[in-house]
Design a protein around this nucleic acid. Structure first.
Lengths: 223, 223
DNA sequence: CGGGCCGTTGACTCTTGTCAATCGCGGTGG
DNA sequence: CCACCGCGATTGACAAGAGTCAACGGCCCG
């Protein structure tokens, strides 16, 4: 989700119009307001009114749902350039928080009404993000429902690596966040990582840093 | 997902226009072609070009993804009135098959180009379906990642019951399909069902028929 | 230097998966 | 019409993968 380019599907939903400008991470109107969020600060909560759309500028954002007893599922991590918070209904069905320090732009949803008519680009970006999110969710359901712990970790690492376009990267999220994203416990995440390291597929110079050493072997593991 | 009505989110993506007509299961243009599919017949496969949108008329449709070794995840079941097959990209990222005998309408995607300008309704229905699908996927990720076998089954039964608006219903899908939807094995599905029956929460007059006897108790189980 | 937090590791438990036998229903053919 | 066959579902015994509980380690920050 590094760059957002129009797909046939999204394009077809709107009248054809010349695109005006793009910025490499998806076009957005200039009307957004930027805000910094502290580590673990809530951007919106489950049940909040869906008044805005958001885009990550710096840092990482997680969206999550909770069960009544506190069990948590992190639906996705959003990296710089990613849009999030687009939903059906007038209430958010999941919450979003900053993972570490993050900078986020928000766009008033009601500002869209006129936009869709005059400035197609933002509307297209929204539908784009929606379809992207759905595609990701489909993949993630396969991971959650059918993959083993090691396969989950391998898939996760390759996914991050691909989105960052780096074979060596810093994990912005804690083991707890990874566990809640992959449907595991922190202990299993930890054990799986060391297991991959022992096999020589990855290196872990520090707890948060990951280097992919054998991508083909990892790719083998994703199924 | 019995009826599709516009939500603020979808409405905002398009210019306001008087709706022309609705049919109770979501407006669709008259251009669609109906087809019958036999049990397990493929409607589209992973990798197929995304040339159409589809709507279930009769029966049930499942969408699924496979791992290379055959493990399968059923993303969702679609009941009469539900739209499916809407995706980013020009290739389907999952396949769709008929569960039992099914009747399905398909709409050419390229036919939409003009429609979005003149007839907003279908475009709105598409975005609606997209957001619905995403919301469902979010819920399902929580189920797959964080719920126990019994909780999964209870959630599944309540969901079906709600969508059919019946406390007593026929399951159109096999135990294998249920297992692949909930990230379980058929044995665990079977055991969980009998466990719920023994507790008196449900009755199983025949293998495919389910009667919900204690919905509050079941609701307790969904978290 | 000390405390706290996060991560790792180990020992053990338990839920769920695996393998296998049996059941039961529905269809088919004698 | 009934017996047989086959497939899907259930049940049981056992195995294994992941979770739980607990101790320890390392790192950052005061």
């Amino acid at each position: 989700m590094q760059t957002i380019s129009p797909t046939p599907a999204a394009t077809l939903l709107f009248r054809q119009q010349p695109r005006r400008h793009t910025d490499g991470v998806g076009h957005v109107p200039s009307a957004g307001t930027v805000r910094r969020y502290a580590k673990d600060e809530e951007i919106f909560g489950e049940g909040d009114r869906t008044a805005y759309y958001y885009k990550v500028v710096e840092g990482t954002v997680r969206t999550s749902k909770l069960l009544s007893d506190g069990r948590r599922q992190i639906g996705a991590f959003y990296l710089p350039g990613d849009l999030f918070g687009i939903e059906a209904g007038d209430e958010h069905r999941f919450s979003a928080e900053a993972v570490g320090e993050a900078k986020v732009v928000s766009y008033k949803r009601c500002g869209l009404e006129g936009l869709a008519a005059n400035d197609n680009d933002f509307a297209v970006a929204i539908v784009e993000a929606l379809m992207q999110a759905l595609a990701r969710a489909q993949d993630h359901m396969l991971l959650l429902g059918r993959k083993s712990a090691i396969e989950k970790i391998a898939t996760f690492l390759l996914d991050i690596s691909e989105r960052l376009n780096e074979d060596s990267f810093e994990l912005t999220m804690s083991r707890t966040d990874i566990a809640d994203h992959l449907g595991l416990t922190i202990e299993t995440v930890s054990r799986s990582l060391t297991q991959l390291e022992r096999k020589g597929y990855i290196a872990l110079p520090s707890t948060r840093r990951v280097e992919l050493r054998d991508k083909p072997a990892l790719a083998q593991l994703v199924g």
